[in-house]
């Protein structure tokens, strides 16, 4: 793959003891593949390669691109991050470094850990009358019995 693109992606996503560097999982090739599905993205991708070629003597390619062409940098960053974070090896690292269940959302879903909390204001009616007689009637009823179970038939009577 393009060594300039490798340099650029490793600037963005360098490796460490836990995380692979972008080049270790061939992010550059994946970026090219992702961009190939859309003519607009393909054209931006070639613009990126041209930019890198024109600045190949400079040491910090990502920094230069961000400073000189923020729009192209934004495109390249999203594409590189996309290629990186959908890679199975990176997903494994995410799971090992957090409580993330390393699988697609479906079909199993994820258990939602939760706790029950009761609202403090269960009995204090807080909505505002619209100035109509109906509004005032309902407010009085609701204040009398905030926990009343209403039926559709009762609610239908509110219609003018």
């Amino acid at each position: 793959m393009n060594t300039l693109l490798d340099r650029f992606t490793d600037d963005l996503l360098p490796g460490n003891d836990h995380w692979p560097a972008a080049t270790e999982i061939e992010v550059g090739a994946a970026m090219q593949h992702l961009a190939s599905t859309d003519s607009e993205q393909k054209s931006l991708f070639y613009r990126l390669l041209d930019f890198l070629e024109n600045h190949k003597e400079r040491p910090a390619l990502a920094e230069i691109l961000e400073a000189k062409d923020s729009e192209l940098f934004g495109f390249a960053k999203v594409l590189a991050f996309e290629a990186y974070y959908i890679h199975p090896k990176v997903r494994e690292v995410v799971a090992s470094r957090s409580m993330y269940a390393n699988r697609s959302p479906q079909p199993a879903g994820f258990p939602v850990v939760t706790r029950r909390v009761i609202p403090w204001n269960e009995d204090e009616i807080l909505w505002r009358s619209d100035g109509t007689e109906r509004s005032n009637e309902v407010l009085i009823e609701q204040k009398k019995d905030p926990k009343k179970t209403w039926t559709v038939e009762e609610i239908r009577q509110w219609r003018r």
Partner: peptide, 12 residues
């Protein structure tokens, strides 16, 4: 959950 005091009543 019906019974929201911030809105007019609704059914369960």
């Amino acid at each position: 959950s019906h019974g929201d005091p911030g809105n007019p009543p609704r059914t369960p």
